[in-house]
Write a protein that binds this DNA or RNA. Structure first.
Length: 187
DNA sequence: CGGCTTTGACCTGCGC
DNA sequence: GCGCAGGTCAAAGCCG
């Protein structure tokens, strides 16, 4: 896996970050909804991951407009419904957005409430990957948290889906970090 | 007691 | 077809 593209190559010294938000994120709104920056972490990077390419185009035909997030009325994509057990509904995965943050803690406080539902050991990584789901009713946004083997100080947070509700506990630090970030579109 | 974490089992997709 | 790895489920246990 790990086929998402990290637009921010990890740079612990980097003051400036590239940020292709205007095109690849679908909209800046998505960014605002998904940015996972902790109150005690340093934002290092962002990437997007479309898990679709590995499947045939016929399998998961999606209009370009839909690439942002095939969200149904309750915020969940159709693909989530099958749970992979019935096998009738083809799974359409939402695009993922990966963030790198330099942080001592794995759990990044991004203002939303998350419930851990799994943890897996990852190949070639001595740190396990943790799986979280948003606990808000009908909001099925997921995120994965993984620490890099190469640089133990870096935590990669991968978001999947769009929150259908406001942040539950906005943090001043979050706003502060946002205000200090610099963006530009490299394309 | 309710919500959360832990953890082993299970399912699915993919590469060989 | 088989094995591996990723992703999810769900029971059990923990904690406030």
């Amino acid at each position: 896996m790990e086929n998402y593209q990290m637009f921010f190559p990890c740079s612990s010294t980097g003051r400036q970050s590239s940020f292709p938000i205007s095109t690849n994120m679908g909209s800046s709104n998505v960014f605002q909804k998904h940015l996972g920056v902790s109150s005690n972490g340093t934002f290092l990077g962002l990437g997007t991951e479309n898990l679709l390419p590995k499947r045939s185009a016929e399998d998961v035909k999606q209009p370009a407009d839909d690439q942002c997030c095939p969200v149904s009325s309750n915020g969940c994509s159709a693909g989530e419904e099958s749970k992979g057990k019935q096998g009738k509904i083809k799974k359409i995965r939402k695009p993922r957005y990966a963030f790198q943050t330099r942080s001592q803690v794995d759990i990044l406080d991004d203002g939303y409430r998350w419930r851990k539902y799994g943890q897996k050991a990852v190949k070639n990584n001595k740190f396990p990957r943790s799986y979280y789901r948003c606990t808000f009713q009908d909001c099925c946004v997921k995120k994965q948290v993984q620490r890099l083997t190469k640089d133990e100080g870096i935590v990669v947070t991968t978001y999947e889906g769009v929150h259908i509700h406001p942040i539950e506990k906005p943090t001043d630090n979050f706003e502060h970090i946002l205000s200090q970030m610099q963006f530009y579109t490299p394309f």
